[in-house]
Amino acid sequence: MNRSVTIALGIMLTVVLSMAGLVLIPNWQFREMEQHKDDDGNLWPVRLEGAEALGRAEYVSLGCIYCHTQQVRPAGFGADIDRGWGMRRTVPRDYLFDKPHQLGTMRTGPDLANAGARQPSRDWHLLHLYDPVITSPGSTMPPHRFLFEKITVPDRVPERAIRLPDNSGWILPTSRAEHLYAYLRSLDKSYELPEAPQ
């Protein structure tokens, strides 16, 4: 077969080797990775459920990853910790349940690995999602007004609605916006792991 088989085997061998080296071996090294039990008996990281899990799906669906990372680089490499994006670097165990992973490669906006720890306010997050320049003047983040209902009649404002700071009315978050907030609030890696002291 004029060496075709030999050539094909050589070609496939190269890519199989790199797959083994870059994916299968690290995956095998992670085989014993599991949740860490702290002194109070809590397990970290937490497996997301309910609204938080639904919110994560919204995060994926809306493509937040294209402007936001979820990883804190170690002290001395970049300024992630000095910028307050986390009290410690993130480690493999933090991402035990992440599927799909959302580590990200672009910081048009700030890192969100600890978004909920840095900014727990529901009002802030929902106003920011509705129109980012309300809370962050000059931001280039796209407004997500389509996740809200705007109310202008003062006598029919539900409890969950948030007043707009310019007094033009109230915004009523849809359940999708509430889920997204629940997920952002859950982004909190301030627990300690043995391999990642603060």
Binding site: M19, L22, V23, P26, N27, F30, Y95, P100, H101
Partner: peptide
């Protein structure tokens, strides 16, 4: 398979993604 299913664990999925 490696980055979207549970064939790889945690950040090994990210390694598969960039591989």
């Amino acid at each position: 398979i490696l980055s979207e299913t549970d064939a790889a664990r945690g950040v090994a999925k990210a390694a598969a993604n960039w591989w």
